[in-house]
Design a protein around this nucleic acid. Structure first.
Lengths: 187, 187
DNA sequence: GGACGCATGTAATAGGTTACATGATTAC
DNA sequence: GTAATCATGTAACCTATTACATGCGTCC
C-alpha cells in the first residue's frame, strides 16, 4: 500500500463534496479554493490516476454535446474513510513561505518610492481577493444559513475555511496599507 | 549568467545584515525567521556554493577554540546590488498552502471531538509562537526604537515583517479558538 | 559511555512548475 | 481566421525533504 500525499487529500476533499472532472479540480485548485491549497493540471491528472490505482476514486467517461468528453471522478467508500482518518492524524506544520514578506525583509536596500509602488499594487490585489471572498460569504449566508452550526455539514467546513481566508486578507490589506504609507512618507 | 531563486535571495537577505556561517543560516531559516521562509541545511550548503560561484557571496574559514571551524559568509557588493533590485521586481504570488486549512475543509467527515482536540493543540502551538514573537517585539521596542521610522534601516525591515507575523498569529489563534469551540459544542 | 550542540556536506526521492502536445467547439 | 473555453495528457526541469555520513568537544 502506497502512502498518499497532501495533494491527494486535497483532491479527495473536493471529490467528497461532488463528482468532478480533472479540469474542474484544476479550476478549484487554481482559483476558487486558492486560499489554502493550489496545484496545476499537470500535477492533478497523474495524481488522479494514482488515486484510482489505489482504489480511492473511480471515473466514468461522460459525453457532452457542444464540448469534449470528460472523465467524471467520484470518491469511493475507501477514499472517504481514508480522508476522514487523515483529518485528525497528528501533524507538523510546514514552514510558511511568503515571498512578499521575504522581499520586505530586504526593503531597506531599495528605493522607498519604488517599494511603496509595489506594495500598493499588492494591496490592490488583496483588496480584490477580499471582495471576492466577501461575495462567497454573502452567498453562504444567503443559501447555507441552516448548515453553519452543523459540524457534520460540508458547507460548515467551507464556511470555516472561508472565515480564515477573510481574516487573512483583511490583515494583509491593513498591513500593506500601513507599510506602504510609511515608505511613502520616507521619500 | 544563471538566475538565482527565492532561497538564494533569502540567504542574501540574511547576509546583508551580518556575516554568517551555513549553520547560522540554517538556524535562522529553521526557527527564528520562520514566519516568512524556511529551509533545511541540506538545501542551504549547496545554495551557498552556487551564490559564491556567481560572485554574490564570499567566505573565509574561521578557527574556533572548543568548536569546529566554520566558514563565515559575507555578501559582496554585487550580491547587495542584485538583492536591492530584486526587492522591487514585478512579482506574482505563489498560491499559499496551509495543510491545517486543507484538513478543516474535510472536518465534516471526522469526529468533532477528535478534530477539536487537534485544533486545541494547534491553538497552543500558535499561542507559543505568538508569545515568542511578542518577546522579539519587546526587544525591538527596547533597543531599536530610533530605527523604526527609518525606511533605510534593516531594523525597520525586521520590525515590518514581525508586525505581519504578529497579526498572522493573533488571527490564527482567534480562528482556531472559535472553530475548536464550535466543534466541542457539537459533541 | 552516550546524548547533545556545533559544523559541514552528499544522495536519493518526492513534490511542483513550465513547457510541450493535441483537439473540439463557440464567439468575434 | 483567430482567440477563448473546455478537456486531457506527457516531458523536462527545478525545488525541497529525508536520509545518509562524518567529526569534534562538552556535559552528565
Amino acid at each position: 500500500m502506497q502512502t498518499i500525499g497532501t495533494l491527494g487529500y486535497a483532491l479527495l476533499g473536493l471529490l467528497a463534496r461532488e463528482p468532478l472532472s480533472g479540469y474542474d479540480l484544476a479550476q478549484r485548485l487554481g482559483e476558487r479554493v486558492a486560499f489554502f491549497w493550489g496545484a496545476g493540471h499537470s500535477q492533478i491528472y497523474p495524481e488522479l490516476r494514482k488515486l484510482e490505482r489505489a482504489g480511492l476514486v473511480s471515473h466514468k467517461r461522460v459525453a457532452q454535446k457542444d464540448r469534449p468528453d470528460k472523465k467524471v471522478h467520484r470518491i469511493t467508500a475507501k477514499g472517504r474513510d481514508l480522508l476522514a482518518r487523515w483529518v485528525t492524524t497528528p501533524y507538523e506544520p510546514a514552514p510558511l513561505k511568503d515571498e512578499l514578506l521575504l522581499r520586505v525583509y530586504s526593503v531597506w536596500l531599495a528605493e522607498p518610492a519604488q517599494a511603496a509602488a509595489l506594495l500598493r499594487g499588492e494591496e490592490q490585489r488583496h483588496r480584490e481577493r477580499l471582495a471576492r471572498y466577501r461575495g462567497f460569504e454573502a452567498q453562504i449566508l444567503e443559501h447555507w444559513k441552516a448548515d453553519l452550526d452543523d459540524a457534520r455539514s460540508p458547507n460548515f467546513a467551507t464556511w470555516a475555511t472561508l472565515r480564515r481566508g477573510l481574516e487573512h486578507e483583511k490583515g494583509y490589506v491593513a498591513w500593506l496599507g500601513w507599510l506602504a504609507g510609511v515608505l511613502e512618507r520616507a521619500t
